Simulated assay, not measured.
Amino acid sequence: MSGYECSGTRIHSRGRGHYRCAVPIIRPYRPEDRAAVTEVCVLTGDGGEDSRERWPDPDLLANIFALPYVDHEPELAFVLDDGGTAVGYVLGTADTPAFVRWFRQERLPPLADRYPLRERPATPLEQLAVVLHHPERMLVAEVADHPAHLHIDLLPAYQGAGHGRALMTAFLRALNDRGVPRVHLQMDPANTRARAFYDRMGFSGIAVEGFPDGAFMGRATTAP
């Protein structure tokens, strides 16, 4: 789906006015969605809640968990569009080891000076920078047979209405069309709402040494 038709009322969401469609649509990511994707990442980045108090530099979180994916594999990024504004997304990679190599070689160098790696990171922002500097954290032996991984986020006002399922279905279909057999994700086990969603989507827990139960989940890419 490359476009939409919308006749709705003008509302204000996240400080910006836009027209809300009667039924938001799922569509492929576009370059003009970049700022909205960053905003959704930041507003849901702390266990599903607004992350700005915890990490006052909003660009860092997005440069770890959102923007690299839309730059590296935009064909695997889909957004929930409500009147021309992305209010949710799913994005990821079909090949985690290849993504890690790209991140190390091309993505990290331009960001390293802005977010230096401290020998003794003290603040939450400095601790988050450690995550930026260690993309190899994504290479987990126990999920090697699930080569793809994903991130999915929706603004709270759009949760619980089936949009997450629609986004996930689009992503799984795209992976399956490319011959990718399985996908995994990592989550905070304390986020019980997210866990319930993944359970409904057919994900199962994968035991990973050193991580609590439920931190990693995976499933086949066949449609739910």
Rank of each mutant, 00 (worst) to 15 (best):
Gly3Asn: 10
Pro68Lys: 05
Val100Ala: 03
Phe78Trp: 01
Pro156Gly: 08
Thr222Leu: 14
Ala94Asp: 12
Gly218Ser: 14
Ala194Pro: 08
Glu119Gly: 14
His18Glu: 11
Ala122Trp: 01
Val100Gln: 07
Ser13Leu: 15
Ile64Leu: 08
Arg27Gln: 08
Val140Ala: 09
Tyr29Ser: 02
Ala98Leu: 06
Pro31Tyr: 01
Gly48Ile: 06
Arg54Val: 12
Glu5Leu: 12
Ser51Ile: 04
Arg101Cys: 00
Val140Trp: 01
Gly8Ser: 10
Arg54Thr: 12
Gly48His: 09
Leu155Thr: 07
Leu111Tyr: 01
Asp46Ala: 15
Leu154Lys: 05
Met201Thr: 03
Leu172Thr: 07
Pro147His: 08
Thr85Cys: 12
Thr192Gln: 13
Tyr69Glu: 01
Asp57Trp: 09
Cys21Gln: 11
Gln159Ser: 02
Arg14Gly: 08
His12Lys: 14
Cys41Lys: 03
Ala36Lys: 08
Leu80Ser: 04
Glu142Ile: 01
Ala141Lys: 10
Arg101Leu: 11
His184Asn: 14
Thr123Leu: 02
Pro156Gln: 11
Ile25Val: 15
Gly205Ser: 14
Thr96Asp: 02
Phe203Met: 06
Leu61Trp: 10
Arg34Glu: 13
Arg107Glu: 00
Tyr198Met: 04
Leu117Asn: 10
Pro224Arg: 03
Asp213Ser: 13
Glu106Trp: 08
Met201Gly: 00
Phe211Cys: 05
Glu73Ile: 03
Gly3Met: 12
Met1Leu: 11
Asn176Leu: 03
Met187Pro: 02
Leu185His: 08
Leu150Gln: 11
Arg14Met: 13
Tyr19His: 11
Gly202Thr: 10
Val180Asn: 05
Thr123His: 09
Leu167Ala: 05
Glu5Lys: 08
Ile152Tyr: 00
Ala196Ile: 04
Met138Ile: 00
Phe203Thr: 09
Ala174Val: 06
Thr9Cys: 05
Tyr4Ile: 06
Gly92Asp: 10
Met187Phe: 02
